[in-house]
Design a protein around this nucleic acid. Structure first.
Length: 782
DNA sequence: CAGTGAGCGAGCTTCCGCTTGACTT
């Protein structure tokens, strides 16, 4: 056993550090936090100065036991968790859990290099209890908010099949999505006419120019074209200005998620999983960071690589200031551990992400790109308006040699090309002059990654929680990530060509969405409830204001209990008030009108399985009719006409193999039922309009897919099959899935073999919760 | 999984922020 035990948070980091520190040091990791408030209880004694109750987390018992043993054997323990609020708290919890003395040495370093480590070891300090208290305040505030608000939702809004929840971070994330959707719903598109001209310069060269301002009406656009009939077009002015482009800083968690989403179409969680693999393989630095900082050593290595690969004039050292105010900067920016490594993995996605990280980090240490922007003004003999043509020439590519950041704006950033050679006074031959109707666009819906960006800008959430937050709001049923088909619309186009003006009407698809976040009715209802009852908690500035308090606690200016007390007084009062309120049914239902046939009331409500329309009342003699809403329809916005359409389901859409094809919509979306089996419709199929041919296709496709997965079937039992799954072959036996023992050839399994293998396994219950069992359990208690 | 949805009401759910595997079909 070595003399020194060093404890860090991550095992990969432990391994690296051990190599640097030598034989006298054993380096172990805590795997993050080891103690926390209890999961199934508030764990905060509100009556007793908010005293928290901590317990060793279930999955950390083993780690803690091992560390306790090693700590006893060691002469000296060094707490080397991250240099931020959470890291300080982890050290304190370790000290408490391992029974270490108060003077245990605490060391910090922000980059893993030999010098940084030596410096840290030479300058140990004690645990900063003020900083720990700031973390405790953060933890307790989040617990109070989350565990008091969520039960209010359970009591006041019982909808959806998943349990509802609220919290400082997730509720704001949902609010952002809901408000954007409402903004889009209220958006009125305006059309205008954009004028573009094409000139033929001969020898295959073309000049494209446009009018700087659009015309608001077709009449204005037409009048302009008429004025241009027979006009002469001349280059009136040429202006050239130097310009430059500067590289973006190296990646933080949030910017990595955004770029991987735009350039590689990765989901936020996929990015993190792939990055974790690269980190564990030692290929990149830590991937959960809010810092854009590179270590001196890293900048030196980047310089070497750039000079070697592109020449020294491509290098330009840059130190980036971190933008975000909430940044805690315990780590470096995300960068390759070795800049000379360009191939880091055989896995395609790992390699693609690595390349992105490598390029971005390298580019951040490269020279600006030098450009030349040329603006040509085209005068028109018959009118005072002028056309403008713009071009760009790259004089020195600099960092553009390796990397260009992409943008969220759709299609706006067309690459400007070079202008052909032009002279002032040159007369241009017009090929055509067009006025095309264009429409203003609503603000874009959020993607996972652009929501992360927004949250980060608002200082809400941390690098380690962006991905989990995004998945929580989807799991709770507040938000769905979907593709939506666009709609057709027509637009007008006026063309002046060969001294004639022609008008044409064309159609285009607009508003289609891919992998965007949409609020559900549940999300909107819960959001509205929270906004009207807990305005300040889900206010966009709430986190920022409590962060100021946490800073004051960390600076020793106020005791954490004072801050929590002050907050809790007002907050708990509002919780109590909301509990007293009658359930507001208008939140979860809306009247649409009367059925013209029966005169019965038509209303839309949100039930256990989502929003649905109901005709009639449960008290009526005749049972009410129900129909679920389609994807994309919301309780808040559905119209009476759309609602009545739904009652055309279930529809019988023809026959196949002597059985009817019935289209309906279930809990999990639209499906076609045929011969007692269910086949899901694709998201692009409209259940109201899908044809017989298409349905037969769907059935045959599904059968084809199933049969290609089947390795063996059994006459004795149609429910027993050997199938090929994502992770290799397995046995599907009724509702059970059984592992195939190692060394067994799946195709050789007989039915008897399967029965034997099934013996030891338990039948999986259809639903995890067996409702009949619970009351019985209570009886025994009594 | 897929012919629910109200209300009755037992007993359940839940937060944010640090970390990795275990598990899946």
């Amino acid at each position: 056993m070595s003399k020194n035990l060093v404890i860090v948070e991550s095992p990969a980091k432990a391994k690296t550090i051990e190599n640097y520190l030598g034989a006298d040091f054993t380096v172990k990791s805590s795997f993050g936090h080891v103690r926390d408030l209890p999961e199934h209880d508030m764990g905060v004694d509100v009556e007793n100065n908010f005293m928290p109750i901590y317990e060793i987390s279930a999955d950390k018992v083993k780690v803690v036991n091992e560390l306790r043993k090693l700590a006893k054997e060691a002469e000296e323990v060094w707490l080397a968790t991250d240099d931020d609020r959470e890291g300080e708290a982890i050290s304190w919890h370790l000290k408490e859990a391992l029974g270490l003395p108060d003077n245990t040495k605490r060391i910090v370093f922000r980059e893993i290099t030999k010098t940084a480590l030596k410096n840290a070891i030479g300058k140990p300090r004690l645990i900063d209890i003020d900083l720990v208290n700031a973390q405790q305040a953060r933890r307790i505030l989040d617990r109070l908010v989350g565990y008091e608000l969520s039960p209010v939702l359970w009591k006041k809004i019982r909808i959806g099949k998943s349990s509802l929840s609220a919290g400082r971070v997730q509720s704001v994330a949902v609010r952002i999505i809901v408000e954007r959707e409402r903004e889009i719903d209220a958006f009125q598109s305006k059309s205008s006419f954009k004028v573009t001209a094409r000139f033929d310069l001969g020898q295959g060269k073309v000049l494209n120019a446009e009018l700087p301002k659009n015309f608001e009406t077709e009449a204005d656009a037409l009048a302009f074209l008429e004025r241009c009939l027979g006009a002469t077009f001349t280059i009136k002015n040429l202006e050239t200005k130097p310009a430059k482009k500067t590289p973006a800083p190296p990646f933080t968690t949030s910017t990595l998620q955004q770029e991987a989403s735009r350039k590689l179409s990765f989901s936020v969680s996929q990015t993190m999983t792939v990055a974790q693999k690269l980190y564990e393989a030692g290929k990149i630095s830590y991937m959960r960071t809010d810092s854009t900082n590179l270590s001196e050593e890293a900048m030196g290595k980047a310089k070497e690589q750039i000079s070697k690969e592109y020449g020294t004039h491509y290098h330009h050292q840059r130190v980036f200031k971190t933008k975000s105010e909430s940044a805690q900067e315990a780590h470096e920016a995300i960068r390759p551990t070795d800049f000379s490594t360009q191939v880091a993995s055989k896995d395609r996605n790992e390699q693609r992400l690595y390349e992105l990280i490598w390029k971005r980090a390298i580019a951040s240490q490269m020279a600006d790109a030098q450009l030349e922007r040329t603006t040509a003004t085209v005068g028109i003999s018959s009118t005072r308006e002028e056309l403008i043509a713009q071009g760009e020439v790259i004089k020195f590519d600099g960092f553009l040699k390796v990397y260009l950041e992409s943008s969220d704006e759709e299609g706006d950033e067309e690459q400007k090309g070079m202008l052909p050679p032009l002279n002032i006074g040159q007369v241009l031959a017009l090929s055509d002059l067009k006025a095309t109707e264009r429409f203003t666009r609503h603000a874009p819906r959020y993607t996972e990654a652009s929501l992360v960006k927004k949250l980060e800008e608002m200082g809400i959430g941390r690098p380690s929680t962006y991905a989990p937050t995004i998945s929580t709001i989807q799991k709770r049923g507040y938000v769905v990530k979907e593709d939506r088909e666009g709609q057709q619309r027509t637009f007008k186009e006026l063309t002046l060509q060969d001294n004639q003006i022609k008008s044409k009407v064309s159609s285009e698809n607009y508003g289609s969405e891919k992998s965007k976040l949409f609020p559900t009715s549940t999300g909107m209802i819960v959001n509205d409830f929270l906004v009207s009852n807990f305005q300040d908690i889900i206010d966009y500035s709430f986190t920022a204001s409590v962060e100021k308090d946490f800073d004051n606690i960390a600076d020793g200016k106020i005791p954490w209990q004072t801050m929590i007390e002050r907050f809790y007084k007002g907050f708990h009062g509002k919780v109590a008030e909301a509990q007293e309120q009658k359930i507001d049914r208008s939140l979860t239902s809306r009247d649409l009108g009367e059925d013209p046939v029966t005169g019965k009331k038509v209303s839309v409500r949100v039930g256990k399985y989502g929003p649905y329309v109901q005709i009639g009342d449960v008290e009526d003699e005749e049972k009410p009719k129900f129909a679920s809403l389609l994807k994309g329809q919301l309780m808040e916005t559905i119209t009476f006409e759309e609602a009545m359409e739904l009652f055309k389901l279930p529809r019988e859409v023809g026959f196949f193999e002597d059985q009817a094809l019935v289209v309906n919509i279930g809990k999990y979306g639209p499906y076609v039922k045929h011969d007692g089996k269910f086949y899901s419709l694709a998201t692009t199929d409209d259940p109201m309009a899908v044809t017989e041919e298409r349905l037969i296709d769907i059935i045959q496709e599904k059968r084809q897919a199933d049969s290609s997965r089947t390795i063996r079937e059994y006459d004795e039992n149609p429910n027993a099959k050997v199938l090929n799954g994502k992770y290799g072959p397995y046995i599907s036996f009724g509702k059970r899935n059984i592992k195939i023992p190692k060394g067994t050839e799946p195709a050789s399994l007989t039915y008897e073999d399967i029965l034997k293998l099934a013996e030891g396994t338990e039948e999986k219950p259809a639903k995890a919760k067996a409702p009949a069992r619970k009351p019985a359990a209570k009886k025994t208690k009594k």
